[in-house]
Design a protein around this nucleic acid. Sequence first.
DNA 1: GCACACTTGTTGCCATACAAACGATTTTCA
DNA 2: TGAAAATCGTTTGTATGGCAACAAGTGTGC
Lengths: 147, 147
Amino acid sequence: MEGYPESTMDKPHRYSLDEQIGYVLRRVTQRHLSIFSEAIPEVTTTQFAVLARLAETGPVSQNHLGRSTAMDAATIKGVVDRLAKLGLVGTAADPDDRRRLTVTLTAEGAELFEARKATALAISRDTLAPLDPAERSVLMALLTRLA
Amino acid sequence: MEGYPESTMDKPHRYSLDEQIGYVLRRVTQRHLSIFSEAIPEVTTTQFAVLARLAETGPVSQNHLGRSTAMDAATIKGVVDRLAKLGLVGTAADPDDRRRLTVTLTAEGAELFEARKATALAISRDTLAPLDPAERSVLMALLTRLA
DNA sequence: GCACACTTGTTGCCATACAAACGATTTTCA
DNA sequence: TGAAAATCGTTTGTATGGCAACAAGTGTGC
């Protein structure tokens, strides 16, 4: 029971919303999404994540793509559908496994990703702008351990 | 380095999705939401945030409540509607300003909040569990500066 | 006193996010 | 081999979260 003043026994448990990790995470995420959509209006953050992963790994099944981008099967389906409608990815049946749907980056998708890559990196920097370089490293290291 | 000039020099700009702040934030948030819904299935994180704020400040207008919990006017309406359906908050017209809708914590709402307060604090601790106390303080301080 | 600007709440649309249920297919193993 | 288990994609339902447009009410300046 070490390290938590204000709790553990029979104390009143003051609850300060503004100091809760979940609330702070939500606000930081909101700010980041705002910066992103301002700089890259063509696609959303999750859509861009899918493009980035496809550019990294090449064609993969839809389910596998979802797992590698931290998306539920239902969620990745919606994202892929919208990217397909935008012409940025294509889908094809897998001849070896008829359950599988292989997702591929189209030429337009690859082009858009390459064209916005530098901007996306700038967005990450802008999100972390209030911190100095050393603090950014610390934050990223700590956050990564919570993921 | 102002603006988003496509690329400062002509560097290749490697883009690693897993090292981007937005992606890490999303994954940490997912883990937190999972811990929360497991421990407090009755309401969602945003709904609990509204209960907490109401418990702190007493009755307020719906719009003001939204601003003080970082929610869009459209979002806070949905949250209040669902909390009202659960009987945890009540709404009443403001006699002085007929546009205003005053939101109040009901007895059940106040009771639920008091009963789950300690659990909610435990959820915050669980989310930060992979870090030691000193690291938790650093993370919260840095994150707060990004909000 | 009155046009104009602002605020408040509402609605609709789109995009995640997850749970649950389902059909089709593939794999496993008794 | 053949039934059970696992996987894959889909659909539905619920809940955020943002944007845009809107009506109604309030306030201000002239």
